[in-house]
Nucleic acid binder design. Structure first.
Length: 511
RNA sequence: GCCAGGGUAGCUCAGUGGUAGAGCAGAGGACUCAUAAGCCUUUGGUCGCCGGUUCAAUCCCGGCCCCUGGCACCA
């Protein structure tokens, strides 16, 4: 069995979960569930990033210790995972001993090899903000903005990682692995970035300035600063499991360059470890009306839609609407359009009418299709399924989930059209043997088509898929590829009478 | 400024060197198993602008305009 290790970025606990966090989890979950269906032994990791200045400061402001603060926010992120039906296998926190231990071991190893050295860091420091300032922070006239208070130039010894000496290696690596980053054009951005010489990376902070972190094993007066702490989680979580390298680190486009595309592969390489096999880089959700909503006091928190419409509907929208890698707009209006037309009207209603007709015209038991009573009407639907089925796996493998869902929905539409053509409600009124045979065939066909449609989207809407299978009296087999074969698997199954999966919301007033 | 992506029906997008496509929205119709859902038909586009190559360009080339994103630390 092929193993497949995938991660999300770990979330910084200085803020609460929002749509971006949710999307990344759902996207990764869809990939993970798909790989499981394909038979891979999947390990899915997510977690929280808990050290650093901001956490320290936020905790102090609340008068609690940083660990308690981190515990609280980390719990919020874990609650979101449950709420979204995320199937992660592990959850790592950077404050855990298993993580700290690995970080320290790697830092020590690199220090011993001479990859980390001590040098003086010179810069302008704001005591009030407790941070070094950049040239870009200056006012146009060269002074520093008020908020920084007194700014002094200070010289501070720190530890640096020899990033620059691996620049050529990285460029070569990217040229040799053109598929390292998805979407591909992002890799060009990285190579563009690498045209400028890299600076070595400052990886430490003295404890007088930052104590909430992992101590350097070779100098306990310092903690390591962000990169070795946060990025290494992908490795530390599986260091003892033999799962490295990861198949994919899933990240947002904002943390591609330089952290994940430059620092991360170089850090690993310097430590004698291979880079992840790929980086899956997604875009951002935009909310154009955000300002307006705020001013009217009606700011929409997209996560509220989970409570209102359920995790499946929310997951469906995110995956259906977003072309992985690009940006999309998130509006309630668009959500409702997708929800109503695709989930409620098209799929949800198909479920309900199938159950109802099976109950009314066949005593609630899916009849066997009558081979004699079957013609090009059935062939047409089956033909479309075969076409859809052939596209399904490649589309999902290439992260074209939005297209895969579109195809699945087109099949659902075709199934609805098939039902109209056969009109079982008319056949049900006829006592003729020929019509009765056709009735059995049409009921069997619609049920089977529904089962297949559900199988094709179950990684996106796992909860709904389970419910639909349940009302069809069906338990899917272990091998997903086999489930995609048209096989009249529902023969003789006793179905439920009704199921309104995606209730239509009360119509909303138009603005 | 540099780099990348994009500008196609009201909206979201697909697409190919040879009479422009889908979904949603809009209009009309027949039906009734169903979540006033579903089905059928249908209105609608100088395919950003200007040149060039070609028998033929939305698709190839050149120039221009506009939008979005990246360019050292917010998914």
């Amino acid at each position: 069995m092929k193993s497949f290790y995938i991660t999300t970025a770990i979330d910084y606990v200085n803020g609460s979960p929002h749509l971006g966090h949710a999307y990344e989890k759902v996207l990764t979950d869809v990939v993970a569930r798909f790989r499981r269906q394909m038979g891979d032994k999947v390990h899915f990791l997510t977690g929280t990033d808990e050290h650093g200045q901001k956490v320290q400061a936020s905790a102090r402001k609340l008068g609690i210790d940083p660990q308690t603060f981190a515990d609280n926010v980390s719990a919020e992120f874990r609650a979101m995972l449950t709420r979204l039906n995320i199937s992660n296998d592990d959850f790592i926190r950077t404050t855990e001993p298993r993580h700290k231990q690995v970080v320290r071991a790697i830092l020590q190893q690199l220090f011993d090899k001479g990859e980390i050295y001590r040098a003086e860091y010179r810069g302008f420091y704001s005591t009030r903000q407790e941070q070094f300032l950049q040239e870009k922070d200056r006012n146009p006239d060269g002074t520093w903005p008020e908020i920084f208070g007194e700014v002094t130039e200070i010289v501070e010894p720190n530890y640096f990682f020899k990033l620059r000496s691996y620049q050529d290696w990285l460029i070569q690596y990217l040229n040799d692995h053109p598929d390292f980053i998805f979407p591909r054009y992002r890799q060009k951005q990285v190579l563009e970035f690498l045209k400028e010489p890299l600076n070595d990376l400052c990886i430490s902070r003295p404890k007088e300035r930052l104590e909430w972190g992992i101590s350097l094993p070779f100098d306990e007066d310092y903690v390591t600063y962000v990169w070795f702490d946060a990025l290494l989680n992908y490795y530390s979580a599986v260091a003892d499991k033999g799962l490295w390298p990861a198949d994919f680190n899933v990240i947002g486009k904002d943390i591609l360059v330089p952290p994940h595309a430059v620092y991360w592969p170089i850090m690993l390489h310097a430590a004698g470890l291979p880079p992840p096999k790929g980086l899956l880089v997604h875009g951002w959700w935009m909310q154009r009306g955000a300002k307006m909503s705020k001013s009217t006091g009606n700011a929409l928190n997209p996560l509220d839609l989970v409570d209102e419409f359920g995790a499946d509907a929310f997951r469906y929208f995110l995956i259906r609407e977003m072309n992985v890698g690009q940006d999309s707009d998130f509006t309630r209006e668009q959500f409702l359009v997708r929800y109503n037309s695709e989930l409620a009207n098209n799929l949800g209603n198909l479920v309900n009418r199938t159950l109802n007709m099976t109950t009314r015209f066949a005593g609630g038991v899916v009849p066997a299709a009558d081979a004699a009573a079957s013609d090009e009407t059935e062939q047409e639907l089956r033909g479309l399924w075969e076409k859809t089925r052939a596209e399904l796996i490649p589309l999902n493998e290439e992260f074209q989930f939005h297209t895969a869902l579109e195809r699945a929905m087109a099949f659902v539409t075709a199934t609805n059209a098939y039902i109209e053509k056969r009109a079982p409600w008319k056949l049900g009124k006829s006592a003729e043997a020929k019509d009765q045979a056709l009735l059995r065939t049409s009921l069997a066909t619609m049920a089977e088509a529904l089962r297949l449609a559900v199988a094709s989207i179950q990684h996106v809407v796992p909860g709904a898929a389970e419910k639909i299978n349940a009302v069809l009296g069906y338990t899917p087999g272990a091998v997903w590829r086999d489930e995609l074969a048209w096989g009249n698997r529902l023969d003789g199954k006793k179905v439920a009478e009704a199921l309104v999966l995606f209730p239509r919301p009360a119509p909303e007033k138009k603005a």
